[in-house]
């Protein structure tokens, strides 16, 4: 199993926004301590810089930032029992209103952004902050060294819920039940994920994807260039898809159908109210979870 985690990629020195320039030396958005009352902290100050996230069906970038937004306000798609749909509750509405505020300041066209759009806009100098895997930095190092020098990464800000709530993209390796050689297949996966094989592989892709095993946090790639470090702990900062319910077929279906992402898109690009958008998402969730 491998995991592609995202962080906030930003330019600091060249940024027009003070918040970002301040982050130059200390790549961490001001967050909220866990013991502070929820109402005392809003997310506005950390990302007052227009933060452009994808609003259309972008599998990685779109899903990642909208799930973070939902969760960081304390929202969730479904309760622990994996049955009760909870997406239309107050925290969702807070998250949606926050997104509506952001949308008004975002780069024009985010309504049509698929996964590559923010990379291009970032490298072309249109935006200074976006959520992404390490690929922007990788491309910048190769082709735009000046931008690469100015790029840094930080975990997603922590909102009212008081703890990191990121979503990560997992790729699983499966062995089919009907496989004639299950042991050979298992051995193959074990071999490919062993330190000797996977280490150089992660190294070669600059840490874009990491095998989901703790030992891999020790790879030199994460510390050789400190700008890579925030990607190392992506798995520690994530919530699983389908939170707070169990991961499973229904959670996967909801993600594949962009229910959360479309809730935010409905309330911004499509002009619905937060309540209407959440109600739509709830209906579809109900159908998927058959509850």
């Amino acid at each position: 199993m491998t995991c592609a985690s995202e962080t906030m990629s930003f330019k600091c020195a060249s940024s027009r926004t003070r918040t970002l320039r301040r982050l130059c030396g200390r790549p961490r958005f001001p967050g909220r301590a866990a013991n502070q009352p929820v109402a005392a902290v809003t997310l506005r100050p950390p990302i007052s810089a227009p933060f452009p996230g994808a609003f259309t069906h972008a599998v990685g970038d779109g899903n990642n930032w909208t799930h973070w937004a939902l969760w960081t306000f304390g929202g969730k798609a479904v309760e622990k029992d994996s049955k009760t749909i909870a997406i239309a509750q107050k925290p969702s509405l807070d998250a949606i209103e926050y997104a509506q505020e952001l949308y008004a300041q975002m780069a024009p066209g985010v309504g049509s952004w698929l996964d590559p759009n923010n990379n291009r806009a970032f490298l072309a100098g249109e935006i200074s902050l976006t959520n992404n895997g390490i690929s922007i930095y990788y491309a910048a190092k190769k082709d735009f060294p000046q931008i690469a020098e100015d790029i840094n990464h930080a975990p997603f800000p922590v909102g009212p819920v008081g703890r990191p709530t990121e979503l990560a993209n997992f790729s699983q390796a499966f062995i089919f039940k009907h496989s004639r050689f299950p042991n050979a297949a298992k051995e193959y996966i074990r071999f490919m994920l062993s330190a000797d094989q996977a280490g150089p592989w992660v190294d070669a892709m600059n840490g874009y994807v990491t095998p989901a095993l703790k030992k891999y946090q020790e790879l030199p790639v994460w510390t050789k260039d400190p700008k890579t470090t925030p990607f190392r702990d992506g798995i520690a900062r994530m919530l699983h898809n389908g939170y707070a319910g169990e991961p499973g077929q229904q959670a996967a279906a909801a993600l594949a159908e962009f229910i959360v992402l479309d809730m935010f898109a409905d309330a911004t690009v499509n002009g619905l109210s937060a309540k209407e958008a959440a109600a739509r998402a709830e209906n579809r969730m109900r159908h998927i979870y058959r509850s």
Binding site: T56, H57, G111, F258, D262, A265, V269
Partner: peptide
């Protein structure tokens, strides 16, 4: 071009 987005439009 759009993968059915924005907002399934």
């Amino acid at each position: 071009i759009t993968r059915g987005g924005p907002a399934n439009a």
